[in-house]
């Protein structure tokens, strides 16, 4: 069993934070729905990273368990999301998220 690297926890969490914010930027700024879904994946991955860092900080397996659950969620979400993208493409003939605004008031 190899030895893990000893890094200040805030560096790991900072990395996770940066990745999360970049993903958030992608969600807010991109109009193509594919890129929005990609950015969501980035955000989920950042959360997983944060969990792994926390688990390593305590020396417990809980972090990795949580990461697995996040992975499961991401998988299910992507499946449904991409299915919706396909249907939306057939209906609206476009991948522009701004076109799907019929629920506005």
């Amino acid at each position: 069993m190899m030895e893990a690297v000893v890094v200040p926890m805030e560096h790991g969490l900072l990395l996770a934070g940066f990745l999360f914010v970049i993903g958030l930027l992608g969600v807010m700024a991109r109009r193509n729905v594919i890129f929005i879904l990609m950015s969501l994946e980035i955000m989920l991955n950042a959360c997983g990273l944060a969990f792994i860092v926390a688990g390593s900080a305590h020396g417990e397996a809980d972090g990795q368990v949580m990461f697995m659950i996040i992975l499961t969620i991401a998988a299910a979400e992507v499946v449904v999301g991409l299915g919706l993208v396909l249907q939306a493409r057939r209906r609206f003939r476009t991948l522009d998220i701004d076109q799907a605004s019929q629920l506005g008031g």
């Binding site: 030895e3 893990a4 000893v6 890094v7 805030e10 390593s56 900080a57």
Partner: peptide, 9 residues
């Protein structure tokens, strides 16, 4: 201010 334990799981 907290460092990681350095243990592999």
């Amino acid at each position: 201010q907290q460092t990681l334990t350095g243990a592999a799981i």
